[in-house]
Nucleic acid binder design. Sequence first.
DNA 1: CACCGTTACGGTATCCGTAAGGATT
DNA 2: AATCCTTACGGATACCGTAACGGTG
Lengths: 306, 306
Amino acid sequence: MTLQQLRFLREVVRHGFNITEAAKALCTSQPGISKQLRLLEQELGVELFERDHGRIAELSKPGVTILAIAERMLMDANSLKGAARDFSAEMNGNLVVATTHTQARYALPEVLKRFAVRHPRVSVELRQGTTRQVSRLVTSGDADIAIATDASAYFKDLVVIPCHSWDRIVITVPGHPLLKLKRLTLEHLVRYPIIAYDHEFAARQLLVQAFESHHLTPNIVLSALDADVIKACVAMDLGVSVLTRLSFDPRRDRNLRALDASKLFASSVTFIGVRRNSFLRSYMYDFIETFSPQLNRRAIEEAMAR
Amino acid sequence: MTLQQLRFLREVVRHGFNITEAAKALCTSQPGISKQLRLLEQELGVELFERDHGRIAELSKPGVTILAIAERMLMDANSLKGAARDFSAEMNGNLVVATTHTQARYALPEVLKRFAVRHPRVSVELRQGTTRQVSRLVTSGDADIAIATDASAYFKDLVVIPCHSWDRIVITVPGHPLLKLKRLTLEHLVRYPIIAYDHEFAARQLLVQAFESHHLTPNIVLSALDADVIKACVAMDLGVSVLTRLSFDPRRDRNLRALDASKLFASSVTFIGVRRNSFLRSYMYDFIETFSPQLNRRAIEEAMAR
DNA sequence: CACCGTTACGGTATCCGTAAGGATT
DNA sequence: AATCCTTACGGATACCGTAACGGTG
């Protein structure tokens, strides 16, 4: 059994059980992969794939179990190399951050700027997606750090560390009737069409739940995938929306108004998520600390050890 | 980086940083190991060992981190092979159970007998030790299953599953004054010399704590490592002792008397511990179920997933 | 001198790439 | 015909064991 063989196994599965594709991705030959996988099967005494007329169709039952273990091993192999590079004081490397639009658009730019000053030789890659996609990117090893809001339920397999807490606000066009109220309530809010995040986002669930707990049904006229789109639609007076204060900048968003809604909705919490048992290179700790200064290396290590 | 190289690394550390010994243990040549370790260091760009005049003295700082990851990988490699053998329906294999004397002596013989009937081709090995040793045997991968009592605190790194609950009893010689009491209390008990388990055992701590919570100090005249020794000493009237009901068999222990002490001491709980993320072969599930029938495969898998 | 780790060297086995074959859609 | 996996084959490489070397206590 070789790490190489496990790598081949993983790659073939990732490429839809197509050895040819996997070979291309790994810059090697198809026959090589084919042979090594046969050898692995022979050594283990188990068929890893369900073969359909000579073609690989899917993983066999043992294959599923074995792949899961193999993937952990390959992740560890990665961690090991990363640890070595970290100790050899190589300050270059790359960092893949999986996050949602809101964070990428409003919170991260400043963080990335400060981080780039400290680690000019680390190349950072942002991957955007829904809360669920963000979680899976880190779980699968395609990203190092997940950042998302109200995501602890989605981050079940990850170590989650709460970072920031954001009040919620209601945004409207200037001159909207809601702005004239002394005290905003859900009963007022429910009378107006609402623009919300897509179902895929945790924020959407929380919005609906808040209304439902008051036996109200919001009239959601539009679902969108990011705050910028939502704001543009609110500006067109298609409805009002509920966002976090993070997403609203009074200087830039002059065509909109924000109303405090911290009493109506639970404040939302931004989490950082990392794989348990993964070795974080020192610049990854630095990134997390830059994002959330109260999280120093020790605090993160403690959270991971639990 | 090869699994072989990691195996070499682990074995050299296990044999007190002696390549020669490691080579013997692995049935290979010293120069082979030496070379592979040098290659590994070269590839990783890190010195794994602190070398003292050409001799390996200990792990370097990076070595510590890297070894930890390597050991996880090697355990997974083992799991992987085990999983394969399990699926290929080979019913032979071996099972190493790390446990304390009490379990090995009183609870396990019957379990082993029933297990042997179901799995005649599985060779079982019992390893005995203190609670801490038991825990480490499983953590290090030298044993598959840990069984111990009141051990959850020691089993921090393991998945623990509670199995049985045992009332505590006080044992004395026949005709002892304590036997004449209507209602036994700690205040009565503290007047007599007590024979207890060694400090290394959780039972010892719990005994002392129970007294201390009543502001009493027990007069422990003797510490012993197992219940048989304790019972022999009680039979000699060196003192009385507190055991679990498991350790007392009225038919065999005719030279002793037992008093219910379930009101004085918390009942003790027997735990099974396994490594998180380790693949258990089907006969291991069967063993656990034989030991504790309410633990079927699903229950165990759920406990491990948490 | 005994012990330990490294270097040197040669044979074997392994791995990989090219080429060709067989099967399916 | 195109795609895909496997078998066959040859060359380069890596790995391992024996032997010899350099240091240390």
